[in-house]
Structures are given as C-alpha cells and as structure tokens.
Design a protein around this nucleic acid. Structure first.
Lengths: 345, 345
DNA sequence: TCCTTGGTTGCACACGTGTGCAAAAAGAAC
DNA sequence: GTTCTTTTTGCACACGTGTGCAACCAAGGA
C-alpha cells in the first residue's frame, strides 16, 4: 500500500498497451518486437518505435511461462566469503551475463538441510540449470538434484552419476607436483594437512600426496597426515602446528592457501621461521598468497576459468550438445615459503 | 531436443494435474495448497497429500505473474572477488533466503555500460527491489534505477535522491579515528592513500583525515595525499610508496586493507620495516589483515551486518514501512603495523 | 414443506507473452 | 473482372496460478 504511494509507479507497459496505442492486436506487437518476418516492415518499425517511446520492458516471467525457458541458472556455493569461491562465481557470472542468463546465488554453509532448501527454491523458480560449488554432495542430494530434470554441473566434485557433469582442477596432479617440489628440495618428513569437510577434492589431493611419496620410495606415515576438525581454514591451519612438530615434519603440504597462511602465522608465533625451520606449500594460489610473509609457494588453480568452463558446459547442455567432464591443469608457483631442510646439526 | 532425450523429464506437475487426480477444479487445489479456509478441511488434507505424492512444486513464475511479486531481489556489485564485497553479499543472501527471497547477483566491474545493462536485466525480471554495492552511481544511473519503480538500497553510497535509501559504515568517523590513532602515537607527517574509483566513501574518509589533522592543528599538506590511478587495490598500495617517501611521511592511512597490504609489501621490498620505519593503518578489517606480517592495524567495518541491514531495509520498504538511512559504527583494531615514529637521530 | 443460512465448489477471468491457424487484405496472373 | 497466390493480421488458445462471484449443497429453523 504505502509503497504504491511512496514510489513512482513502475512503468507497467505491456504489449497490450502498445497494441492499443498502435491500433493493432497484441499478437502483431509480439511478432514485431521479436522481429518476426510475419509483420509488415513499416508497421513493425512503427511498433518498435512506439515501444521504445512508451518505455516498454518485456516481462521475462510471462515469456518464460510460455517458452518454458527462464534464462536463469542457480549457483550453490558453501560460502561466498571465500577467495576460492568468489573467483569462480566471477567466472560463472561473467559468461552467464554475456549470454543473457541471470544467476541466482545461494550459499549452503555446508549444511545438508540448507542445501536441500536451496535446490527446492531453484526448482520452484524453474532455473534452466544448476552449478554446484559445494563441499559434499551427498547421495540424497544428488538424487534430488537429478529429479529437477535440468542439467547440473559440479565444480571440483566428480561425485556425479548420470546427467551430472563436472569441471575440476587436476587435484591429484597438482598435489603430486606440490609434494614432488618438496621432495626435490630434499625433504623426507613431509606432512599433509587435509580438509575434512571437502571430501572429494581432499581425497584426490591426499592421493596425490601418497603417489608422490610412493614414487620417491618414502613409506607413508599416518602420523604425518592430519585433518583438523574445525570449519575455519585459517584456524585449522594454526591448530595443526603442534601435531606437525610432534610428528617431526620439516615440510608441510596444506589443503589450501588459507590453511597454509594460518599455519605460517602459528609457526611465527611459535618462534619458528618459514621456510628455514619449516617449509610450507599451499593450494589455490589465492591473491593474498603473494602478499603474505613469506610469500607463499603454492599450486595455482585457474579458478575464474573453472567458473567460465562450468557455465560454458551448462550452455552446451542446454543447447542439447554432448559434453565431457573437464579437468583443468594446475601449475606450481614457487615463491618464498619452501626451501631445503636445514642440515641436521 | 537432445536435452529432452538425455535428461529425465522434469516433473511438470501442475495444479491442474492434481485437480484432475482429485476430481476437483484447479481453483480448489489452489486454495487447498494456500491453506485457504474456503476449502473443506478433509478435501484440503487429501489434496495436500496428493500434491506431495505427485511431487508437485509450485511454479513461482506463474504465481508472480498474478500476484505481481517475484520475491526476488537484484544485487549489483563492482566485483565479486573482493573480500569487502563478499561478506556483504553473504549478509544480504542470508537474510534474503530466510525470508523466502532469492537474489540475482551481477557484477558491473565499475563499467557504467554494464551497470545499465544489469539494471535493465533486473527490470525485465521484475525484481521486487535492488541493492547496489557499486562504486560510482552516476546521476544517470540513479535516474534509471528510480524508473524501475522498486525500492533501492545503496551500500556505502549516500548519493541517493528520493526513493533511494542507504546503509553505510561511518566512513568519516572511522577515518578520523584512524588518523587520531596515528596522531596519538606521535606522528605528524601522516599521509592518505585514497581510491579514485570509489568516490563517495573516499570523499568521506578523506574528510575524516582532514578533520583529525585539523583538530590537532596540523596543516593540510596536499603532497601527503595521493590517489593512485590503477584499478587494483594491492598494486595501488604498492605504487604509492615512492611518493610517500618523497613526501616524508612517517605514517600512512590507506583507503582499505588491501592497499595497506600492498604498501607494506612494497615497503618490505624497499628494505623498510613496518611499523618501525613506517606506520600503516588500513580500513575494512578483512580477514587476512590479521594474518599478514606485521598484523595490520585497521578500522573494522561490520560488513556482514551492513549486508543484513540493507536487506532488512528492503524488506521493510516492501512491507510499506517508513525507513531511515543507517550509518553503522566502525571500530579501531590495533594490531602491529602502527607504532610511534622513530625519534630523529 | 419451504426458506434461510453458512459452508463448499466451480466458472470465468486475470496476469503478460507466444504462436498455430484461419481470415482478411493485397497483389498477380489470366 | 475473376481467380489464385502471397502477404499481413487477428482470433483463440496456451503457459500455471490466484480470486471474485455465482451456484450449489446440506443443515437448521419456521
């Protein structure tokens, strides 16, 4: 009520209004605005000019109702406030916008209940497709997703069954490269600090860690692998330090850069010097990794590109094309947080 | 075409289907699902059970068409990949979701052309309201926004005319407090590194800087105020260093934390020690500011809360209530990057 | 038995747009 | 001028849902 009074009434101009003004039927207006060849060129031009003057803006809702296409996609993330996530969102949004799609963004906070609620909401809004950038995609969740009857693309999460596609970075290869780098520097006591609430990618990175050790003929020591139980990467990294020291690690491969940065801070507070006393390598190559002290050695993930490719895949699926899962290469970025181990005194 | 074949057909169950199955008219089904008292309690229960079994999901598009409410809002940001922005988006999204709204996220990349396009898209989708977290809201832009006829809330940008409301942090007070902190430490040559592409907030922070100096009876020296021309905060911070040294600054107040971090890195590369040789204070209190070296002294902005309040304001406006602009308090967070000036040798 | 009342239900229209089909208008060929 | 073809237009229905109004039904009272 009050809104009506307070706000200037929105230009509720419909094609019917234009039709009335032009003295034609709404069908003709519809055709003219869609550049149909079934309308006389002159009338069409007149109608388009009229629409312009009257400030007409098509109502996509009504269009969608009949065309069964909303030109809308749903994007589920765990948390928006995560430098890994936001670059991907950026990539998705850029391509989506360019192609005339709008994106619904929702975060699940890794809560299964909310994940379901989000999917439900997307269904009610009849999105054309869904991109999931979530941690754990439970079997139940995936089933529910498939029931939507719309294409789904998972990022960094190859849990997909049928009708579910994925884009991811080469987690396994990247992890292997990270650990190889430490091995080449001469380390043998190399630890892995994993992430318990991102099972799919964590599994691959752990596997890469094991493969690298294996190739170097270094036995796998469970004491050197920890999975902190918290939900904050920075804190998890910090809290990992005591265990690492106890296990006698001289180098650490962290699940991601934020953990690595947390760990480096804890080390500094503990009087340890990185990389002299402890080498640390991360994963992701977030922007800040080049601005912490020491600058972080890490594995670069093409995050923006991952988002772009996910959207591209969705577009292809919507166009009825066949698609294949994508795995993008990672790259080792050597900075200052890794060095040879101190020679034993 | 191929999509139809490849994907399981979405459950296109409408109230008409339910009506047919229940042997009633679609009106009755509609009323039953909306818990209208105009339906027999038993039939209503039966219909609801049936809807459940048939996997019915209401089509919000159709609902919106008749109710003229989409329960959708548009959120415009400059860039998603910005730690200042993402916490706000988080706050907006959390409250929106809780209240049954979905949010369209679009980034403008500070490009006026794209900003207009985004607004246009929002209009076509008939969003119920818009939140703008953009840099510069040109007069043209604001006009266009108002034509939408929907409530608008600006964040950190009181450029609003009529029908445009705002939520912001106390940029002026925060800046004053930052500079006072430096003054209290004994600095007199205090510089300000501003941001040219965020005019509204930059103006307030600069004003706070001047007020603080004024109160301390220190004359304003234009040489101590720089506005780097780039569009990357980190780089702008780095590039500011030479000018600052030339101007003889012993302390620097930066427009935001990212600039401060860039500046600190440049200082380190230049062989300067922060805070011993140069004190640096930022603005925002992004998460990373507590994890760089030295830990950054800064002005905390309640970003999540700003997003929440903006959404709350939009909800109030949509409910027809009167609202007033909101200015949230900031807080000085003293860490390690500020210290008294070195006594002159 | 008839009328009134209150509770249920369906008809019909609306929201804004797209489109198959038939009708009308215009032009072409004879 | 007549007939056939082509172009242009409008009618009517569809998409999925909400709702005013009239009609129906059952129960209660006179």
């Amino acid at each position: 009520m009050a809104v009506e009074k307070t706000l200037p009434k929105g230009q509720r101009v419909s094609i019917k209004d234009i039709a009335r003004a032009a003295g034609v039927s709404h069908s003709t207006v519809s055709r003219a605005l869609r550049n149909s060849p079934l309308v006389n060129a002159e009338t069409a031009a007149y109608i388009r000019r009229l629409a312009q003057e009257m400030g007409y803006t098509p109502n996509i809702l009504a269009q969608s109702l009949v065309t069964q296409r909303t030109y809308t996609i749903g994007l589920v993330v765990t948390s928006i406030a995560d430098p890994f996530v936001d670059a991907i969102v950026d990539g998705v949004e850029a391509l989506a916008t360019r192609e005339g799609y709008s994106v619904f963004l929702s975060s699940s906070h890794a809560d299964p209940g909310r994940e379901i609620a989000v999917v439900e909401a997307f269904h009610r809004r009849r999105v054309d497709g869904v991109i999931v950038l979530a941690s754990r995609v439970g079997s139940l969740y995936t089933e529910r997703l498939q029931e939507l009857g719309v294409p789904i693309v998972l990022i960094n999460n190859q849990a997909g069954g049928e009708y579910v596609y994925s884009v991811s970075a080469d987690n396994l290869g990247g992890a292997r490269e990270a650990v190889c780098h430490l091995l080449e520097l001469g380390h043998t006591r190399i630890a892995y600090v994993g992430c318990h609430f991102r099972p799919p990618s964590n599994r691959h990175r752990l596997e890469g860690y094991r493969q690298a050790l294996n190739r170097a003929a270094i036995p796998y020591d469970p004491n050197l692998v920890i999975h902190p139980r918290g939900f904050s990467d920075l804190e998890n990294g910090q809290q990992a330090l005591p265990h690492l020291l106890e296990a006698g690690a001289t180098a650490v491969f962290c699940y991601n850069d934020r953990m690595a940065i947390g760990l480096i801070n804890a080390a500094r507070d503990h009087g340890l010097r990185v990389p002299d006393d402890l080498s640390v390598i991360g994963f992701d190559d977030i922007e800040m990794s080049a601005f912490v002290t020491p600058r972080l050695t890490t594995i670069h993930q093409p995050r923006y590109e991952m988002g772009r490719r996910a959207m591209a895949m969705l577009l292809a699926l919507l166009a009825g094309e066949q698609v294949q899962d994508v795995v993008l290469p990672t790259e080792l970025i050597i900075r200052e947080s890794t060095a040879p181990p101190r020679s034993e005194p």
